[in-house]
Design a protein around this nucleic acid. Structure first.
Length: 582
RNA sequence: GCCCUAGUAGCUCAGCAGGAUAGAGCAACGGUUUCCUAAACCGUAGGUCGGACGUUCGAGUCGUCUCUGGGGCACCA
């Protein structure tokens, strides 16, 4: 669609220039899509030119239209004025055949581009703690990370997905202390429990215990100290429990299709920042308080004062993130680094980026915090203390069970083939779509009931549309002889819905481009939902295979084939598996 | 107290660098299956876009103020 927009932008610009005798910047030509299809395919409001031409927008529209009608390159289209608007009806036949031909030629490359070609982008996401299993918040984070990676890559960027596992600190020691006291050497194998859940249970156990035993917190602090002094017994326990947690988390990643190119462990990076802070101290960027703690004063930037090193010389979250950033740039010099982290950490990243800038790292300006919103429940916030945190594994299991049940109830199990595999894909599609549909920056409410629904604007709706199309194409191939001699004739695709489908398919690459620009996969979910909706409406009313004229059958099948391709390409970007059958 | 965010239909969300009569989905009610998968399709109902002022030919969209919700301002991460 962009192609046609640019062509017409130029034509209109030329005509307005001739009319006014003044130069006009192409960016000043505003292009819109008319609110209703019957008004046209592109719309140009004439208001902005009124001051130059000293006449009414309505009059300008009339005069520009006159001029365009005399222009050969504009002649094939319909030019119409409607008050102050100049509306263009594109040449349906040529657009239809061009768009379909392009899709069928490009196949899975349709919608991909080169606007980010060669750009090296580090994408950090997930970042779990090893003291508990993943929850719903991580699932949103992961869905965003995976989808944004695909979107950026599809436009030619080299994206490095990195995870920073938070495997040290006093909170990790808490599960360890509880395990020492109550664990009795139990293992996940013996309990038949995922390791991350086992560790998480001891973390909860610690919190309960600490309520009655004021000594507990002190024990955790002591354990952290022993850990830092590399006490072999503590290290052994730490390694064992971390392994359980990480193996469990990795199992969840496997289920949800989450993968990383590089994993950083906080236990290996937390010392890195100190050198940088010391260097900054020498440069005079930081200063030392009388108690030996190191600070930076950012009050000029409205960011307040901030501690970089504790008085006992140990590092903090910020210290460590400084080190990690520098390390990553050394590992793989990037053009951009994007942190997908909750919006409650906005301030932290503002400070982090500012400090890096003041330290003179030129790449600091290429750091970006994608501050996604919190996931809340209909009753309010998720609170671990009240046990309202939605566990990732449980949710996925529920979705799978329900998808399998649904398949059974509709008596589709034979068609679906491997029931378990299909149910898994439906569950994953439902989950990813649900989490990616709202804009990332906004908080969202997770309604368990709604998330388990497979109808309406959902992943399974896209999958269902795809499966029906696939089934239709199979039938076409089985009955090929009937339609022998049928030829694709775009001029037979005259229905309003067919034209709408063509335009929506033509706009798809722009949606991907915009999603990449805004780091917002919801633009892709919306575009696909509209496309699927238009198609569902279309084929409900209009038979594709059941037509006398083989040319019409082939023409509609060709359109359908193109649509299937666009749908599949888009679903891939948002982590909704395409299903040939369901 | 200071800073950052959001407020659109009963509920969940869109609304693309201000533009034509504000859109979906869910829920509600009513309809469609000898017909390519009813996880679908169609229809009805539902809104003074939190409020006020301002900028503009034109504001859900921009600015200021205000109300309400969320988040942040730790030698936690």
């Amino acid at each position: 669609m962009n192609r046609y927009k640019q062509i017409w932008r130029e034509l209109i610009r030329g005509a307005v220039e001739e009319e006014s005798g003044k130069k006009l910047d192409p960016a000043d030509v505003i292009i819109e899509i008319p609110p209703r299809a019957e008004l046209g395919d592109l719309a140009f409001p004439m208001f902005p030119y009124a001051p130059h031409l000293k006449t009414s927008p309505k009059d300008i529209a009339r005069r520009v239209a006159e001029r365009l009608r005399r222009n050969d390159s504009a002649a094939s289209a319909g030019i119409e004025t409607r008050g102050p608007y100049l509306n263009i009806h594109l040449d349906r036949l040529s657009v239809t055949s061009d768009v379909i031909a392009e899709i069928l030629k490009s196949v899975e490359l349709y919608g991909r581009g080169e606007s980010l070609k060669g750009q090296r982008i580090v994408l950090e996401f997930s970042c779990p703690n090893t003291n508990k299993p993943l929850h719903l918040g991580h699932l949103r984070n992961d869905a965003l990370g995976m989808s944004i990676e695909r979107i950026l890559s599809s436009l030619g960027a080299q994206v490095l997905k990195v995870n920073l596992i938070n495997d040290r600190g006093v909170h990790i020691c808490k599960s360890m202390v509880a395990y020492q006291h109550f664990g009795d050497g139990i293992t996940p194998e013996e309990l038949k429990q995922k390791g991350d859940h086992l560790v998480g249970d001891f973390y909860v156990r610690f919190a309960e215990w600490a309520k009655e035993n004021p000594n507990a917190e002190e024990l955790a602090r002591q354990m952290l100290k022993s850990w830092e002094q590399e006490d072999p017994k503590v290290r052994e326990l730490w390694e064992r429990m971390n392994r359980w947690a990480i193996e469990g988390i990795e199992e969840t990643y496997k289920k949800t299709g989450v993968r990383f190119d590089k994993i950083y462990l906080e236990s290996q990076t937390y010392l890195l920042g100190r050198k940088i802070v010391e260097a900054g101290l020498e440069k005079g960027v930081f200063y030392k308080e009388s108690d030996a703690s190191v600070w930076i004063d950012l009050s000029a930037e409205k960011l307040d004062k901030k501690v970089l090193l504790r008085s006992d010389g140990t590092s903090l979250y910020l210290t460590q993130d400084l080190g990690t950033a520098v390390q990553r740039y050394q590992d793989w010099p990037f053009e951009r680094m994007i942190y997908i982290v909750g919006n409650e950490q906005r301030y932290h990243f503002q400070v982090l980026f500012k400090v890096l800038e003041l330290l003179g790292f030129h790449w600091a300006e290429n750091l970006y915090h994608l501050a996604y919103g919190m996931v809340n429940l209909p009753e309010g916030k998720m609170k671990s203390r009240e046990g309202t945190v939605v566990d990732a594994d449980e949710l996925i299991e529920d979705l799978e069970r329900l998808a399998a049940k649904e398949t059974f109830e509709k008596d589709r199990q034979a068609e679906a083939g491997d029931l378990r595999l299909t149910a898994e894909k439906i569950a994953l599609g439902a989950l990813n779509y649900y989490l990616l549909q709202p804009s990332p920056l906004k908080d969202m409410i997770f309604d368990p009931k709604e998330s388990l629904s497979f109808s309406g604007s959902t992943g399974p709706y896209l999958q269902y549309t795809g499966a029906r199309i696939s089934s239709m194409l199979r039938k076409f191939n089985e009955r090929k002889l009937e339609f022998q001699g049928g030829v694709f004739k775009p001029e037979l695709l005259t229905l309003p819905d067919e034209w709408l489908i063509v335009k929506q398919m033509a706009s798809y690459p722009e949606s991907v481009f915009q999603a990449a620009r805004e780091l917002n996969p919801s633009i892709v979910t919306a575009a696909l939902f509209e496309l699927a909706q238009t198609f569902s409406h279309y084929y409900h009313d209009n038979p594709v295979l059941h037509n006398e004229d083989p040319d019409l059958v082939v023409s509609r099948i060709t359109l359908t084939q193109a649509l299937r391709q666009v749908l599949a390409n888009g679903m891939d970007l948002i982590g909704v598996p395409f299903l040939d059958r369901m």
